[in-house]
């Protein structure tokens, strides 16, 4: 990997002037992902904050070819682009060695976009799919998704006097994607940029479908200060709520800070720290919902132990 100083000299693929909120993690993640290749790249984008904010006509924040067609089909759209590339290359009409990446939010990955993603992976297109996971439908105003944390308050699962936010745990999409037995899948966080860039590089060169699920703190939806974005992402990893790992050629490997926690050289922080850090969990601090906070911790521990077991196989 080139040094950060050299990276700062690389022409940017996503420019300033996009209209994402101050402190949004999405452009930070995209920047890091796109630093993972020095090949020409074509981007597909699902409908969502990232698409709306980087493309408002006539203001294009992209310095690379970019396509958005709809919400649920970023993977299908990029597989069409990649199919065209295969055939046009075969016919000698395209010479470049191009890489393909799709950016989608958690709704466009876990929920409405899942079918198209699963289909595209099964067909074996050569593309990297990046989930910008901010754990809710932020573009429409913070509604519950399949990625929303249990106990989190959103505008469709608010914390009321009877119901304390979302009642279900999120689905483990990274493992579901790994069950496709694809060449590469990983979880990452923008605070550990080296880890994320490395994973992106592996994804771009996987020679088949690759998937990276990236935690993407949302100051507006998670109710934290915009300056705290990177710290919150780090906290997700340090509590083992969002372990950094990769799945490559059928093997599970824990990476970054998560690796150090697994090896016992770094402390695993309690989930209470996570709960306290964001307004969306504020109600869980009420003694009335202590059982929920406990359940949260138990689930994190259970999933973490499972991952450690997988990494030892």
């Amino acid at each position: 990997m080139i040094s950060i100083k050299e990276m700062a000299d690389v022409p940017v693929k996503l420019t300033e002037g996009h209209r994402l909120c101050a402190g949004c993690a999405e452009p930070i993640i995209a920047k890091q992902v796109l630093l993972g290749t020095d090949k020409p790249v074509v981007v597909s984008n699902a409908t969502g904050c990232f698409e709306v904010s980087t493309s408002g006509y006539p203001y294009n924040a992209w310095n690379v070819p970019w396509i958005h067609s709809a919400f649920e089909n970023a993977a299908a759209t990029i597989s069409g682009v990649e199919s065209a590339y295969r055939v046009l290359k075969r016919k000698g009409k395209v010479q470049d060695d191009i890489r393909f990446v799709a950016f989608a939010g958690d709704g466009a990955t876990y929920d409405i976009g899942f079918q198209a993603l699963s289909g595209a992976i099964e067909r074996g297109h050569q593309f990297l799919f990046v989930c910008l996971n901010n754990e809710a439908y932020m573009n429409t105003g913070i509604q519950r998704s399949g990625a929303t944390s249990k106990g989190a308050a959103t505008t469709t699962c608010p914390s009321g006097t009877c119901i304390p936010g979302k009642r279900e745990f999120p689905k483990d999409i990274t493992k579901i994607i790994a069950a496709h037995d694809l060449p590469y899948a990983a979880q990452a966080s923008p605070h550990n940029w080296k880890d994320l860039i490395e994973k992106s590089a592996k994804g771009f060169e996987a020679n088949g479908p690759a998937f990276i699920n990236v935690i993407s703190p949302c100051p507006r939806g998670w109710r934290h200060e915009s300056a705290m974005t990177i710290e919150i992402a780090k906290l997700a990893v340090e509590t083992c709520l969002w372990p950094l790992y990769e799945f490559q050629d059928g093997k599970w490997k824990i990476t970054g800070e998560s690796k150090r926690i697994a090896e016992g050289t770094k402390e695993k922080r309690p989930i209470q720290d996570w709960i306290k850090s964001q307004g969306r969990f504020k109600h869980l601090l009420d003694p009335k919902w202590k059982n929920l906070a406990d359940e949260f911790q138990e689930n994190v521990d259970k999933k973490w132990e499972e991952l450690i077991k997988l990494s030892k196989q």
Partner: peptide
């Protein structure tokens, strides 16, 4: 033929793939 033939997982994706391919510069 030397067509890239894609067995999509739904008609919605068929049209999405055609859109991606056509935008990319292919006859779809």
């Amino acid at each position: 033929v030397d067509t890239e033939y894609v067995c999509s997982e739904s008609e919605h994706s068929s049209m999405s793939i055609c859109i991606g391919a056509s935008a990319a510069g292919a006859r779809a």
